[in-house]
C-alpha cells in the first residue's frame, strides 16, 4: 500500500453512557478512496468526525501523515489535548447539511477561510475560489447566496470551500443524504472527479453504487466496530459476514 495518510488505532468514543465506537482501527493510504457503509447508529459518522477532531475520541491514537496528533503520550480526552491546527490544515470535510455560511455569497464562502486562515490576499483567494467553483460547475453562480442555490449546488460549493484550503485528505459525511434524488448525481460526479485526480478520501455514504464504482476499499461498520472490509467487489458482491449480507440485502432491495 502507498504511504499511509490517515491511521486510526483503537478509537473509542462515548456520548455519556452510550458507547458509539468500541475500538476501531483503520488505515487510509495516499490517494485511496475508502467508503464507510453501515446502518444508522453504527458509528460511521462519528468515526469520520473523529478524524478531524470534531468529536475527539476518548481513547485511541490518530496519525495524520505519520504524525501523532495527540499531545503528549497516549490519547487525551478534551479537544485541548489534540493538535487541532495540524489536523485542520490537512483534512477537509463536507457535511450532510452543507453548512454553507448563509450570510456570504458562494464566492465569499470559498474565500473567507483562505484569507483568514491561510493569509492569502483577496485577489489570490478570489482567483482560487473562482477556479474551484468553475471546476465544480458553478462558475456562473459566484455572487449567489446559498439560499438561492439548489441543494446539489450548495453541496458543490461546500466541496469547493473545503478544497480551497488545499487539504491532503477529504472527509465526506453522508453528503448526498439531504439531497433530492435528481441532485445526487451532480455531487457524486464531482466526488468521482476528485477521486480520479488522486485525492485521498474517506466517504461515509449510503450510495452503494458510488462505493462499488469509485472506492478502492469498502468498510462495513455496525455497532461501533468494523464488521468487514475489503475490495468493493468482495464486500458488496460476496460479503463474508451475515450482518453485512443482511444490510446490503435491505439497501439493494429498495
Amino acid at each position: 500500500m502507498a504511504e499511509t495518510m490517515v491511521s486510526l488505532q483503537g478509537i473509542c468514543k462515548r456520548f455519556g453512557k452510550l458507547e458509539v465506537l468500541k475500538g476501531v482501527d483503520i488505515e487510509i493510504g495516499r490517494g485511496e478512496v475508502v467508503c464507510v457503509l453501515g446502518p444508522s447508529g453504527s458509528g460511521k459518522s462519528t468515526l469520520l468526525r473523529c478524524v478531524n477532531l470534531l468529536e475527539p475520541p476518548e481513547e485511541g491514537e490518530i496519525f495524520i501523515e505519520g504524525h501523532d496528533i495527540c499531545k503528549g503520550p497516549g490519547s487525551g480526552t478534551g479537544a485541548e489535548s489534540w493538535e487541532l491546527d495540524f489536523v485542520r490544515q490537512r483534512v477537509g470535510i463536507v457535511f450532510q447539511q452543507f453548512n454553507l455560511f448563509p450570510h456570504k455569497t458562494a464566492l465569499q464562502n470559498v474565500t473567507l477561510a483562505q484569507e483568514r486562515v491561510l493569509g492569502r490576499s483577496k485577489a489570490e483567494a478570489r482567483e482560487k475560489a473562482t477556479e474551484l467553483l468553475e471546476r465544480v460547475g458553478l462558475g456562473d453562480q459566484l455572487g449567489q447566496y446559498p439560499e438561492t442555490l439548489s441543494g446539489g449546488q450548495q453541496q458543490r460549493v461546500a466541496i469547493a470551500r473545503a478544497l480551497a484550503m488545499d487539504p491532503h485528505v477529504m472527509l465526506f459525511d453522508e453528503v448526498t443524504s439531504a439531497l433530492d434524488p435528481e441532485l445526487v448525481k451532480e455531487v457524486l460526479d464531482t466526488m468521482r472527479e476528485l477521486a480520479e485526480e488522486g485525492m485521498t478520501m474517506m466517504v461515509v455514504t449510503h450510495e452503494i453504487g458510488f462505493a462499488r464504482e469509485v472506492a478502492d476499499r469498502v468498510v462495513f461498520m455496525d455497532g461501533g466496530v468494523i464488521v468487514e472490509e475489503g475490495k468493493p467487489a468482495d464486500v458488496l458482491e460476496n460479503p463474508r459476514e451475515e450482518r453485512t449480507r443482511q444490510f446490503l440485502g435491505l439497501v439493494l432491495d429498495r
Binding site: 470534531l54 485542520r88 450570510h103 483568514r116
Partner: peptide, 29 residues
C-alpha cells in the same frame, strides 16, 4: 446552528474568527 461553527472550525478558523465572521453576523440578524 452548530453546523456553522463546525464548518468554520474545520476550515481551520479560530474560535475568535468563527465568532466574528460566522456566528455573530448571523446571530444579530
Amino acid at each position: 446552528p452548530a453546523g456553522q461553527r463546525e464548518a468554520a472550525r474545520s476550515l481551520g478558523m479560530s474560535h475568535g474568527q468563527t465568532m466574528r465572521h460566522v456566528v455573530v453576523p448571523q446571530a444579530v440578524t
